[in-house]
Design a protein around this nucleic acid. Structure first.
Length: 732
DNA sequence: TTGATCGATTTTTTT
DNA sequence: AATCGATCAA
């Protein structure tokens, strides 16, 4: 054996830990490859090994590799694992989320799509506020046509990769009598004026850039010799277009995904992208990974049987050679807090012999975490909420950042408006409105108009002097921008603007916490070279990571759990209406039901050793008690893999005395568990869409049914919530 | 312009 | 239940 082959074998030693299919996926470097990788089959391992393989065998230099993920968490994970495997070489790899890569491309080519390279990235909150302004200034009733709906519509178009004049007529909704397209146009030009881009733009602008500048596109195509895409099932149409542009150069594109884990349909994700991979990239090699290395057989079997109820899947058969393990335990509970009590009790038992980090509670909706938090706090068990209320979304942090945004990019009127009167400086609605009018008239940025309005008589002298002072401050801060380090700059700004002072004087309980958060923000700033880098981080990452190392039980949504694994998983709240989520079902019918089911599949397959599913018979929502029945998904789990226990030891008469129930409750546990086939949302033959008459409000249509309470849109009175006894059904 | 009070609305998931 | 927003008095 000659010397080189020994070196080669050594340098490729990571290949030995791969199974046959995984090795194929790693070594088929040239041409398009689609890896269909079921849960726990070593998807990330394949991606990481592939990058390693490309580098080790000199197929590409780091900067010739583009690796795109969907979430920040995934990109962080990938980054860590690649650095572990290949060492320093990671530095040059273009590894990040679609959005962060998009930003990187746009910052270097901003002028070509009409932005300056220091453009601001606005988030959903800013977006809604801008749209609200826009709706109002078009004299549209923002009560009837809320900004949130418009933002939903526009984001949908952007997710589909459609510019205003590309939206097909049939998909123009009736928002404000069909004005949605004009508003979309106005909104886009408003962003341009402010030198700002929203999340959708980060992809969409790239597409326009590639489309209109073939030379730029060619450079990127040449640059990226190898492209890897994680969670391909989650890409939306815009991202798909984006990817096709870049991949059409080398055609060395490797997409990894699992149609059974597609859970972002509501964000425009297209499972179709994965189905049409062969059409997009002819000659594609398709590799299936079906050996599961994570879960024990009962768990894997239950998850597989559940997902089999979905139609329209590519179909995979996951298998494992592990020991049988424990069946999934399903328990019923009186109400949400009983459920939380039981879950936490079981966490305690498990934690006697296990690491807290290996336990996770996965919920359908963010607000469900609260009950568990309360319980953990009372019994004093450390926990962390992953993806919970985000650091950068806190009020004080957003305010502070708004100051920095104006300093970084004075055209950012969205940020300027946020803090123009925070802390209060006597610049209220009237003043802001005047500035707005002037900026609209002269088609200039808000802050320019604020400067100019000082030369007019449009606002009162008091307001004038206060505004003048603020602008003077900003000018000074801007002049400090490039010579002061970012942390120092923030401290100066918070101090001189009176912002810190405002919270120090505030006597509310949360004020000290807010001041702490501002300190923490200042600390975070130490890690950034310049303001733009920091602001990008804030808008794209949102998370301020910490607590990674200490021992804590994890609480998160099912969505946030994707890509993670734990020994022990709790899945509470498996009730009709909550999971599957009724609202989602109302909006998207069968499609949504299948997505909910995939969510259940994701939840179960996170577990290595045990899964406990639970549901409550009664739960409080919107401050009212609601009875519920177990999720249909429980029925879909095979009997031989589950074990049902009634956890109702606290069930006694005190319960009824302690709670202010006036209504009849006929709890019959066996009965209610058996009779899960029917869903009690239909009363008196009223359905979503039913036409009804009301004595006072006249004709209307039912849009939501919540037991006896109906949400109705009346032809002449807008939306009202009415008890079903007071309406009369009209059949015509 | 500000602060208080009342009423409406909220809870799906994320870049 | 808790938050947000509109409305109104000071």
């Amino acid at each position: 054996m000659d010397k080189t082959s020994i070196i080669n074998r050594d340098k490729n030693k990571y290949l030995h830990s791969l199974n046959e299919e995984q090795r194929q996926a790693v070594c088929s470097v040239d041409g398009p490859v689609l890896v269909l990788a079921g849960a726990g089959t070593g998807k990330t391992k394949v991606l990481v090994s592939r990058i390693c393989h490309l580098l080790n065998n000199n197929h590409a230099k780091p900067w010739e590799i583009l690796a795109v993920t969907f979430t920040n968490k995934a990109s962080k994970e990938m980054n860590n694992r690649v650095s572990n495997l290949v060492g320093q070489a990671v530095e040059g790899i273009w590894l990040g989320t679609f959005h962060s890569i998009g930003v990187k491309i746009l910052r270097s080519n901003a002028e070509l799509i009409g932005l300056k390279n220091n453009f601001t990235i606005i988030d959903t909150d800013d977006q809604t506020r801008v749209l609200k302004q826009l709706i109002k200034s078009n004299n549209i009733d923002d009560k009837r046509w809320p900004a949130r709906s418009l933002s939903y519509i526009i984001n949908k178009w952007k997710d589909m990769g459609l510019l205003p004049d590309e939206v097909p007529p049939e998909s123009i909704s009736n928002f404000a009598q069909g004005k949605s397209i004009d508003l979309y146009k106005d909104y886009n030009s408003l962003l341009k004026v402010q030198n700002a881009a929203d999340f959708g733009d980060l992809i969409l602008h790239c597409i326009s850039l590639f489309k209109n500048n073939p030379d730029v596109l060619r450079d990127y195509q040449k640059k990226f010799k190898y492209i890897l895409v994680d969670e391909y099932q989650d890409t939306n149409q815009a991202q798909h277009k984006w990817l096709k542009f870049l991949a059409m150069g080398s055609k060395n594109v490797c997409c990894v995904g699992d149609d059974d884990q597609s859970i972002y349909g509501w964000r425009g994700a297209e499972v179709g992208n994965i189905l049409s991979f062969e059409r997009d990239f002819p000659g594609a090699k398709i590799i299936r990974l079906e050996k599961n290395y994570r879960s024990q057989p009962h768990i894997l079997k239950a998850a597989s049987e559940l997902i089999k109820n979905n139609k329209g899947r590519l179909g995979k058969t996951l298998w494992t050679d592990q020991e049988n393990g424990d069946p999934i335990i399903i328990s019923s509970h009186l109400d949400g807090s009983e459920e939380a009590r039981s879950v936490v009790e079981n966490c305690e038992i498990i934690s006697k012999n296990n690491n807290l980090n290996e336990i996770a509670i996965l919920v359908r909706a963010g607000y469900q975490t609260r009950e568990f938090e309360d319980r953990f706090l009372t019994v004093n068990i450390p926990y962390r909420v992953i993806g919970g209320p985000r650091f950068y979304e806190r009020r004080e942090i957003r305010d502070a950042i708004a100051y920095l945004r104006v300093i970084s990019q004075p055209n950012d009127g969205i940020a300027f408006e946020r803090i123009i009167n925070v802390p209060k400086r006597g610049l209220g609605q009237t003043t802001i409105k005047s500035i707005y009018e002037l900026s609209k008239k002269n088609n200039e940025s808000l802050i320019t108009s604020a400067q100019n309005i000082l030369l007019t008589e449009m606002i009162r002298p008091q307001a004038k002097s206060s505004l003048g002072k603020l602008l003077e401050n900003f000018n000074r801060w801007i002049s400090l921008r490039d010579q002061t380090n970012v942390r120092e700059l923030l401290e100066i700004v918070l101090d001189e603007s009176g912002y810190t002072d405002m919270w120090q004087k505030d006597k509310s309980i949360e004020a000290p916490g807010r001041l702490d958060n501002l300190m923490e923000l200042a600390d975070t700033l130490e890690n950034f070279e310049n303001l733009t880098d920091f602001l990008d981080h804030v808008s794209l990452v949102m998370e301020n990571e910490k607590n990674e190392s200490s021992q804590m039980i994890n609480i998160m949504t099912l969505h946030a759990a994707k890509g993670l694994e734990f020994d022990h998983i709790f899945l509470p709240g498996w009730e009709e209406g909550l999971f599957p989520n009724q609202r989602s079902l109302d909006e998207n019918g069968t499609l949504a039901l299948e997505e909910e089911r995939r969510l259940g599949h994701v939840g179960i397959t996170r577990a290595r050793r045990t899964v406990r599913i639970s549901f409550a018979h009664s739960r409080r929502s919107f401050g009212e008690w609601q009875n519920s029945i177990p999720s249909r998904f429980i029925d879909e789990l095979p009997d031989e893999n589950i074990s049902f226990i009634e956890d109702n030891k606290n069930f006694d008469n005190n319960f009824f005395q302690d709670n202010d129930f006036n209504q009849d409750i006929n709890f019959d546990f066996d009965q209610s568990y058996q009779s899960t086939k029917k869903i009690p949302h239909i009363m008196k033959n009223i359905f979503i869409g039913s036409k009804i008459n009301h004595d006072k409000y006249g004709i209307g249509y039912v849009i939501k049914i919540n037991y006896e309470k109906l949400d109705i849109i009346f032809e002449d009175h807008g939306k009202k919530t009415i008890i079903s006894d007071y309406v009369e059904i009209i059949n015509d």
